[in-house]
Write a protein that binds this DNA or RNA. Structure first.
Lengths: 344, 344
DNA sequence: CTGAAAGCGCTTACAG
DNA sequence: CTGAAAGCGCTTACAG
């Protein structure tokens, strides 16, 4: 009783062949209904579970997806980008919903990629999170491509069309954030975040920002742009530089919530009030956003939908169906950091 | 070239038997060094990876751990307890460090447990997170025990000694939180959180609180205790009840940060200043804690260490070694919500 | 509707 | 040091 029951044990008890047990457990209509039910009852009684290794080996697929999350080494190791954590939650759920298991792994930027999940038949496909900064990963993606690995990458559309990417519409997000600021009569918007082609997601947000400005007939305030990566401290530093630059601005569009929160800390430290003196919009709507002080007005990425689409698309890819890149719409969440609505 | 290479392909190329290939790839000293290196080179060239399903089937272990996170259905589904998310991060890392893979799954409270990871040989053992509320799960744990599943549960020590539990020292945490409040000359402490045996972790915190009070010769303020589960809104509600009760108090010990944050919102809404009028201490040190307004003074659970110990202990259990329950020490993080130190 | 048989790709006694 | 062989527990043509 200590060792696990196998299909042969069940076959013996049911007085049928092992093949019939296997069919019955998969609920095959080939097996007589009565026999089927009897077998299933015995299986339940014995607490029998199909051995995944055996069935996967036989069918040559694992019914498992792997999620690789890029870990920013500049961060304290316990501080994974909270946005990715939200995505992790929704991807986990979406995967389970499709009857798949999910293998999760954090990958150091520096270390060798152990993206051999598919090669070793541990997973049928891979979801890449946090590799938006694709410049540094190009050769690794190339290798995945060469190996015919099924994978999908979260982020801006990739310049290599063979790489399937799913992401939120960062351009549109940049537009709505900027339009919101403008609608509140701020006209001189600073931008905090790396807008180079090195950070395609930030860049798209910036491009949307620029477009909205242009549409409104307002010039980009190039002097008030400072690079930042998506951490609180980087946002703090960038805002300090902005402040020290002496250039005029009445509002800030931060390329991420973490940057926005850091910037607000810098502003406060210099005695600047948000939103009375300076309005701030963030991006992501991470859980912290609503607890910030003032609560952040921000562009929400729909992580639930994103997770579902990511998983669905990867599954299609695995099954050899046609899938293209997709852009998920974003929406504005108005809180207090720009004024406008005050529901404190 | 499209289909994956097998050990037989390598054997063919290397001019040896498949058994020798298998040995060489596991770097067995039985194989001649030169032959071994030649085989490994060919494997690399062919981008060969051992098929995990086959090797797991053969060796009957999966080198995989499963993590089950209990999902509180009262929450919006995107809002997983941030403390669990931190734990997830550290467990993922600790698992990888041990050369294991991690299967992650969120389980609905209501739904049937698909804790069949081990039965189906998908995992060698299971980590249970968020099942501290064990009363409701007793029979399920019992079943796991009966099936000889290797599992470990995060939380307070379990009354059933067969269940291996690892958790932070909640009693000690309650003591240090309370001592801190007392050291700042608050004497009338309200407690927010369910202190019944239904929530063993909260209860231990409460017991530590009571002990510290007793030691200081101060009576428990029983009238100022209100139940709350670990959500912001529950904390808000509990604080409202406390306020409405009309009983006097000068400080609050919240059984979790989320409760504390909700309580602070309630206090603010009623025009009560924190920490000037009322001091508040939380518990957990979730990422949000430092962004709260005022930033939360709280009891930090060392999630990094906790993840490591959890994984190590489970592995010991799997390997048949002796393991006992462990209590991880906590420490106080002083921020602004109690006054005392002000580094805003 | 059912059974006997092959085979998925490994690991590991066993024999040399 | 190496090879032939068995077998892990399934699924699924094939034959009846």
């Amino acid at each position: 009783m200590t060792s696990k029951a196998t299909s042969i044990d069940i076959a013996y008890r049911a007085g049928v062949s092992q093949s019939t047990v296997s069919r019955a457990l998969r609920n095959s209509p080939l097996v007589n209904l009565e026999t089927r039910q009897r077998i299933q009852a015995i299986a339940k009684e014995l607490n029998y579970k199909v051995d995944k290794n055996a069935s996967n080996l036989r069918t040559q697929n694992s019914h498992t997806l792997a999620l690789l999350i890029c870990e920013d080494p500049t961060n304290d190791e316990s501080l994974i980008n909270p946005f990715f954590l939200s995505m992790l939650g929704s991807i986990t759920r979406a995967t389970a919903q499709q009857g798949y298991d999910l293998l999760v792994s954090f990958q150091q930027l520096s270390s060798d990629w152990h993206a051999d999940y598919e090669d070793s038949n541990k997973a049928d496909g891979i979801i890449l999170l946090g590799y938006g900064d694709y410049v540094d990963y190009e050769h690794k993606l190339q290798k995945l491509l060469e190996q015919n690995t099924h994978f999908i990458i979260w982020g801006a559309e990739h310049n290599n069309k063979e790489v399937l990417s799913i992401g939120c519409d960062n351009h549109q997000g940049g537009v709505i954030a900027t339009e919101h600021i403008l609608s509140l009569n701020f006209k001189n918007i600073a931008f905090l975040g790396d807008a180079s082609e090195h950070s395609p997601e930030f860049r798209d947000r910036y491009l949307g920002h620029a477009e909205a400005l242009k549409k409104a007939g307002i010039k980009l305030n190039k002097k008030c742009q400072f690079d930042a990566i998506s951490t609180e401290s980087s946002g703090f530093d960038a805002a300090m530089k902005l402040l020290d630059s002496g250039h005029q601005f009445d509002s800030i569009f931060a390329a991420s919530d973490l940057i926005a929160i850091g910037a607000i800390r810098a502003l406060k430290q210099r005695g600047v009030n948000v939103p009375e003196d300076i309005a701030v919009v963030g991006y992501d709507d991470i859980p912290v956003a609503s607890f910030a002080n003032p609560a952040l007005t921000t562009v929400k990425q729909n992580t639930k939908l994103a997770g579902e689409i990511l998983v669905e698309s990867l599954l299609k890819l695995i099954r050899g169906k046609d899938v293209g890149p997709q852009l998920i719409p974003t929406n504005l969440v108005v809180r207090q950091s720009c004024g406008g609505v005050d529901k404190s």
